[in-house]
Design a protein around this nucleic acid. Structure first.
Lengths: 210, 210
DNA sequence: CAAATATACTTAACACTGTTAAGTTGTCAA
DNA sequence: TTGACAACTTAACAGTGTTAAGTATATTTG
């Protein structure tokens, strides 16, 4: 059915157009300036048409959040060739923070805003695939560090949460302006990296001790 | 001027009534359910009256955010008697996370939401006093740990950011539902504490090594 | 081929939001 | 008594997400 196929493609095209428009607004004007009406204006359809392609705004934001994970994967792609797992761990943290600070809107969506998680709870089979996958890579690396006696052993799950927490925490505090009066803009990234390096050094030292 | 005094008191009373109403809505119904109209309904005044006492909604939220810091101070009040600075550091982290998980709405306001920081930028002499003070206590404790050779030495400022980042990161990920599919509700607190304990142990060990 | 149906989209509306300009009281001082 | 000032309200603006109902257009069926 060539005709049905073409129709299906047109539907997918409009769906993509909605996401593209959302992303344009989102990246250029920030999260709070994305509205259904503005999206509709951009694609030159009525606002209600958007609801024929997405259940609600949360579902749109969830889709953008997935795109964010793809973008982040690009940042960290060339890291997994690094042999030394401690160095890899260090670089993972560094690039994670770099991504967050360079793409604050996406970072917000992926790790701070409630909206995409609300979409997840009502639609999907209720697994946060993107997040799980990213955390999985972190856990693997930590496990490898432990296996090779490069860092102090412990509950991998808890430690992964702690390390993720640390990099996330610094990025989140930075992009939500809690570091503004503490550190000048240009010293922010070096300072955050210094904190991470300090932790990794401490870890490494205690590993060498054993 | 007894009469002018009474008037002044009445003004302050209404101001407090607005904050009380805001807090009630805020704690009971969550951040996104606090609106000027709902506040006005609760205090039985018209919505515009609120604007005679506060510049805008951000200013109300900024005041609530300050109350949050007072509340947090109550949590950590009995900690500063602890002699051993490493143990104190540990307890600070533990109680910080406890506060965050038990008062997610306040935590949101204090460390995640943009609104109170926006109020800060347009009104005050532009110093985040509450945050600075809290971070100050953390830095003192870290400095003390270093002075007593209990933890690896380094840039106190960067390390304070890293440690704060870690506890904040875990709380923020937890209350924004990024740990939901990873850790069951009842295991969340123990797991987070395990992560913190792991870090502190590593720090302590490297300190003893020297 | 004509009638019925399904598809794609729009109009209009509901119930909210923060915020402001203009108007209305009531109280106090000259 | 009049005028000014303070406290408060009404009405409105411009926006938000979302839904019910209506309108063309195209496709399928009798």
């Amino acid at each position: 059915m060539g005709i049905a196929e073409r129709k299906e493609k047109q539907k997918q095209d409009l769906r993509k157009a909605i996401l593209d428009a959302s992303m344009k607004l989102f990246v250029e004007q920030g999260y709070e300036n994305v509205s259904i009406r503005k999206i509709a204006d951009l694609i030159e359809y009525s606002p209600t048409t958007v609801y024929l392609y997405f259940k609600d705004k949360n579902e749109i934001l969830f889709n953008l959040h997935e795109i964010g994970f793809q973008k982040m994967a690009e940042y960290t792609a060339d890291i997994f060739t690094i042999k030394n797992p401690v160095v890899r761990l260090h670089k993972m943290g560094e690039y994670y923070m770099k991504f967050g600070l360079e793409n604050p809107e996406f970072y917000d969506l992926m790790f701070i805003l409630q909206a995409p998680m609300e979409a997840l709870q009502t639609i999907d089979n209720c697994q946060w695939k993107s997040g799980d996958q990213a955390l999985g890579k972190l856990k693997e690396t930590i496990q490898e560090c432990m296996d090779k006696n490069l860092i102090e052993k412990g509950d991998v799950h808890a430690i992964a949460m702690a390390i993720w927490g640390m990099v996330h925490g610094m990025v989140a505090l930075a992009i939500r302006n809690r570091f503004d009066k503490l550190v000048p803009r240009e010293e922010m990234v070096p300072m955050m990296n210094k904190g991470l390096t300090w932790l990794l050094n401490v870890l490494d030292a205690s590993g060498n001790k054993t």
